[in-house]
Computed example of a mutant assay.
Amino acid sequence: MKTILSGQSVAKLLGAAVVALGLAGSVQAAEEAAAAHGPVVDRQSWTFAGPFGKFDKAQLQRGYKVYKEVCSACHSMKYVSFRNLAEEGGPGFTADQAKALASGYKVQDGPNDSGDMFERAGRLSDRFPSPFPNEQAARAANGGAYPPDMSLLAKARAVHRGFPWFVFDAFTQYQEYGPDYIYSLLLGYKDAPKGHECGPGLNYNTSFISGSCIAMPQPISDGQVTYDDGTPGTLQNYARDVSAFLMWTAEPKLEERKRVGLKVMLFLVVFAGLLYYTKQKVWKDIAH
């Protein structure tokens, strides 16, 4: 039995085919765009998120311990001074504690009276010393890869959500993509799937923003750092704590900025109200 299609039916079928092809093209374009923008990293819950967020001082102190015992072997933090550890809005170390922490580092100074450079114990006014004397030495020690400075890493590294989520982010002012990314990266080391082998000296990571093969081997694992406050030494805790610490190093005045911003917004609301009532008072007896 033959089926004869009317011109209207043919037009509908053609239209459906065009829509299907368009949707397929949109899906492919979306996948290509997602690949171009890097991996999508799930949001985490941070105490410093939102307009009223604050740093968890205990978490920052744990994060500093992770940085010191693990990350500082390869990564510098040259824009942070030891005195910052005792400043308001930071990890909450006392001046004496920060001084003791600084004295545990060796800092190059000089020249002395003989014109020679020398090493001395760190002071509060010193910045965190680099583990390598220069970039060439850092690359030589890391198979040609250059470990980035961690001072601003939480602001310099970020992932971005696609449409329409970034529209909502503009209103919620979510700024924690950097810590989200660092946390996910530290947990993203996996065995490479079939057909996706990494080259020599590279490691497969599901969250690496520049592809899926990263030169840095997995830097930390369960039980590697012992916390002083009894917090379990798990990879998840290490990743969260050091990510929060790096958010603080990238924006040490975050709490102050939010306090000032709140006061400014309250002032603007009151000022707008005063302007409105003043206008009503001045113009109420004038005919329009």
Rank of each mutant, 00 (worst) to 15 (best):
Q236T: 13
F55Y: 13
T278L: 14
T206L: 12
I214V: 11
T206D: 15
M247Q: 12
L21A: 12
Q61F: 03
A141F: 02
F93M: 06
F52R: 14
A35N: 12
G38T: 05
S26E: 12
Y204H: 06
A29R: 10
A154K: 03
S81E: 08
P200L: 08
R62W: 06
K68F: 07
D109R: 10
C213Q: 02
L274S: 06
R123D: 11
G110I: 07
G122V: 01
A58T: 11
G104N: 08
S103L: 11
P111H: 05
A100S: 12
L21E: 01
V242K: 00
V282M: 12
P111C: 06
V282A: 10
Y204C: 05
S125R: 14
K279S: 13
R120F: 03
G104C: 04
A156V: 09
R43V: 08
D96I: 08
V27P: 10
V80E: 00
D222H: 08
I209H: 13
Y227Q: 07
D222W: 05
V10Q: 14
R259L: 13
V264G: 04
R83K: 15
A250D: 01
P252Y: 02
Y146Q: 14
Q136S: 13
L187P: 01
Q108C: 09
W165G: 08
T172I: 05
G50C: 01
Y174I: 02
H75W: 00
K65R: 13
R259H: 13
F208Y: 15
P200H: 10
R139S: 04
V242Y: 04
I214R: 08
T231E: 10
D56F: 03
Q61E: 06
L235P: 00
Q280R: 15
V282R: 14
Q8W: 14
E256I: 10
A95K: 15
F271A: 09
T206R: 13
A11F: 13
S221I: 11
N205K: 04
P39K: 01
D96P: 07
S130D: 02
A170T: 12
Y177W: 13
G233M: 01
Y181F: 08
A154C: 03
L254N: 09
A11S: 14
M247P: 04
V264C: 06
E176G: 11
G178E: 00
A29Y: 15
S130W: 00
A17H: 06
G22L: 09
R43S: 10
Q175F: 09
D169S: 09
A141D: 02
R43G: 10
G89L: 06
Y181W: 09
L262V: 11
V70M: 05
A33Y: 15
Q136R: 12
E251D: 15
